[in-house]
Amino acid sequence: MHIPDGFIDAPVAAGAAVVAAIGVGVCLRGARRTLDDRTAPLAGLVAVFVFAAQMINFPVGAGTSGHLVGAALAVILVGPYAGVLALTVVLAVQALIFADGGLTALGLNVLNLALIAGLVAWFVFRGVVRVAGTGKPGIVAGAWLAGLLSVGGAALGFVAEFALGGTAPVSLAAVGGAMVSVHVVIGAIEGVITALVVWSVATVRPDLVVGLRAPAVASSERQAVAA
């Protein structure tokens, strides 16, 4: 569910676009540093994967089904830089090719669903894995919590934008309460599916899961690239 044109007023949308552009710029530099010239093909294929994952319907029961947001999944699997870039490109494609999310609201959607959701998920997962270890309990709990809080973070981002530039005279408490309660449910399901997928990748190819790499290894790799 992406914000359409005109839902948040123009100054706030413009401000969000500036913040989103800065954040994506930081991720571009980070991705160049860690992935070098592999950035484009790898982030591109990850973007395709996220796009495909969002199209898969998970039956919830009673004839309804939901789909992944995918932010937590992307950053846990490929790291925050490539993950955020892939999510950004997916949002751009959805706005440009599927008219899903307004063209003038792209900054808002990138801020909420790529940057906020992605960064929250990354730090939550890393934090849990550091405390609980990289065994099954740590991975599953970390991925579940990352999925839950990434959706919650995106929803809170929306509430903040609505408070600053909402075009509807609705009490903020009502919007905030409704958004949080709905997204706790959505986030819990997102977390379960994220945990199941991350665990299945971690059992087959643990080397691919960037979220499980030791920070020391990552920084020595960076030094090697810089040298």
């Binding site: 571009l28 093909p41 982030a43 591109g44 973007a47 870039l85 490109v89 997916v90 494609v93």
Partner: peptide, 12 residues
């Protein structure tokens, strides 16, 4: 680099 990621996505 964003354009390249987009191009890869559209292609695959």
């Amino acid at each position: 680099i964003l354009v390249q990621i987009l191009a890869a996505m559209v292609r695959y």
